[in-house]
Amino acid sequence: MARIAIVKRHIVQLLAALLYNLNLPGFATGQIYDGPSKAICAPGLNCYSCPGAVLACPIGSLSASLNDLDRKLPFYLVGTLLAFGALFGRTICGWACPFGMIQDLLDRIPLPKLGKNKITRRLTGLKYLMLIVLVILVPLGFWLLTDVAYPAFCGWICPAGTLEAGIPLTLANQSLHMFLGPLFSWKIALLIAFIIACLFIYRPFCRFICPLGALLSFFNRFSLLGYRVDRSRCTNCGDCVENCKMDVHEVSDRECIQCGKCAMQCPSAAIRFCVAGRPVTEAQPRETDGGSKAPL
């Protein structure tokens, strides 16, 4: 049963990645899609310069929107991110982020894993710094000094951009090769470091770096979709937190990516996926002990 649920989530992740990247011929031609759907942001982190991308990247668009700050506030981007947060919270991270899917798949490679601890919990704060400093403040500083809001997170850090856009575009376009320099080498090195980290640490990019995850985390406790705990059933056994690979303190807190692993582990079937507060999945106690744990 648990295996089926995990496979289901991977299928949804794959479908989301495909949906964001429907322009498959772009990978062969090295041309990016320029249709009207690119006015809409994808809910997950997906570089809009990926040859397959048919939607815009919310983080890249947010940084770019600062270019027009002297004329208007970025209502469209703020509204879009508010909508994603209020509707899904970090369910997006667990179910609809292509880069999250890649990290999940890398984690399945059987190697020794570094579990969560006090240090990893502290490192989760880094992603808020990324959001404030590299997505907002640095582009804003560039804009004030040069009139162009340089998307610092995309330019200096984002491994999703390197993997989804940088590598496919430079492979398909000989003309881009003459522009490759130290920055590209830095981003390739960073991507390799992330891939290696993913082999030993569960979702390091989501946990420590992703500014979109940081933004969505503010909505995670009350978003319309997400796993919720039925307090009348909960025995406070702590299995949910103990078995979670993310740095959570409780179900649906800011670090929870709503993957649902806790619901599979819960011996009293107290955790269920809810839409607008109403459970939409059946209560299924853990198969191993029949869910017969007595309330405290």
Binding site: G35, K38, C47, A56, G60, S61, P151, C158, L169
Partner: peptide
């Protein structure tokens, strides 16, 4: 913004 290649995103801007 999204219909043009973002050179920053791919690491050459």
């Amino acid at each position: 913004k999204a219909v043009l290649i973002c050179y920053e995103c791919i690491g050459i801007g």
